[in-house]
Design a protein around this nucleic acid. Structure first.
Lengths: 153, 153
DNA sequence: TGCCAATATTCGTTATGACGATTATCCTGC
DNA sequence: GCAGGATAATCGTCATAACGAATATTGGCA
C-alpha cells in the first residue's frame, strides 16, 4: 500500500501484506477475465449469475439464492437480472406457491453464450497459473479456504 | 462458481478453484475494511490514495504515479482526487517545470484522518487472520506474490 | 380472523466506474 | 524553431454500484 518508506511510520504487518497481496492478485486476475468477457458484452457479475443458474439446472433459483452463491456480493440483484432478462439470457417467473419469490432460469441463449466461453475461460486460468507447480497451487487453494473459515469471535 | 453439480459439465479445474477462492477471500476481506472506512466517509480507493501519499512524503506524486501504486486500478484518478481535494484531504498544484503534471500531496487533515484509522485497520487485519499460524500466513503471502510474477507468454 | 414481524423483491436517488475523446504540454529529429 | 508524436491530465457520457426506503406477501400468534 505504501511505497517509499519515509518519515516515522508503522512497521509493516504480515497480515497487511497478505491483504494487499490478495487484493492485487484478485484484481490482476479479474482484469483479464473481464477483458475476455467484455468481448461478449458480459460483466463478471453477469457471467457469474449465468454459471450459477447453469449449475442449478431447470428448477432455477430465487434472487436470494443467486445472491448467496455469488463470488462477490451484489447489492442489487433485481437490476442485474433485469438487464440479463432484456438480453434474453435469463427468464423470470413469479412463484405461485409463495408469490414473494421470483424464480430465475437460464435460457437456451444464455446456455449457448456460456458454452462459447467455457473453453476460453479455462484456457485463461490455465495460462495464468502455468508457472506455478501443481502442489503449490493446491496449497494456495487450501490456504485461501482456510483464511475464510474463521470461527466467530 | 457453480453450485449443485447437475447435468453434463466440465470437470472442476484447480486453477478455477484458486481463482474463485481468491475473489471470494479478497471480497470478504474488502467488505470488512470498507465498512470500517465508511465510518469516516472514505472508500477503499480514497484510503489507498491517502496511504500512498503519506508514504511518498512532502514531495507528493503525480496522478500517474499514484495510479501505478494503487492496489486496484482506478481509471479516473482525476475525479477521485477532485473529491478528496474538495474535502480538504489532499492539495494539488501544477508543476512549473513540466506543466502537464499535477502534483498531489496529503494535507494535515488527511494525515490526521489516516492516523485515526491506523490502529483500527491494523486490528482488523490481525483479527481476520488470527486463526492462521504465522508460517502459513507467510506461505500465503509468498504464493500470492509468486502468482503475480508471471513471465510474459 | 386480524395484526405484526419477517421475508423477498423492487425502486428512487446519488455516487462512482468505465470508456473515449479532448486539451495542454513537452520532446525529438530535422 | 517547428511539425509530429508522446505524455499527462481532464472531461462528456453512459452504465453500474451503493444505500435506503418502499412494496408485496407470507406465517405465526393472540
Amino acid at each position: 500500500m505504501d511505497s517509499l518508506p519515509r518519515g516515522p511510520r508503522l512497521a509493516p504487518l504480515l497480515e497487511e501484506d497478505v491483504f494487499v497481496g490478495l487484493q492485487r492478485t484478485a484484481d490482476w486476475l479479474l482484469q483479464g477475465i473481464e477483458q475476455l468477457l467484455k468481448t461478449q458484452g458480459l460483466s463478471q457479475a453477469q457471467y457469474n449469475v449465468l454459471r450459477i443458474l447453469r449449475g442449478a439446472g431447470p428448477r432455477g433459483l430465487s434472487c436470494r439464492e443467486i445472491g448467496e452463491r455469488m463470488i462477490t456480493r451484489d447489492p442489487d440483484m433485481t437490476r442485474l437480472l433485469d438487464r440479463m432478462e432484456e438480453r434474453g439470457l435469463v427468464a423470470r417467473e413469479r412463484q405461485q406457491i409463495d408469490r414473494r419469490v421470483v424464480t430465475t432460469r437460464v435460457t437456451p441463449a444464455g446456455l449457448k453464450l456460456l458454452k462459447s466461453l467455457d473453453h476460453p475461460v479455462r484456457e485463461y486460468h490455465r495460462r495464468r497459473f502455468r508457472h506455478i507447480a501443481g502442489a503449490r497451487l493446491k496449497t494456495l487453494a487450501v490456504l485461501l479456504e482456510e483464511a475464510r473459515k474463521r470461527e466467530p469471535g
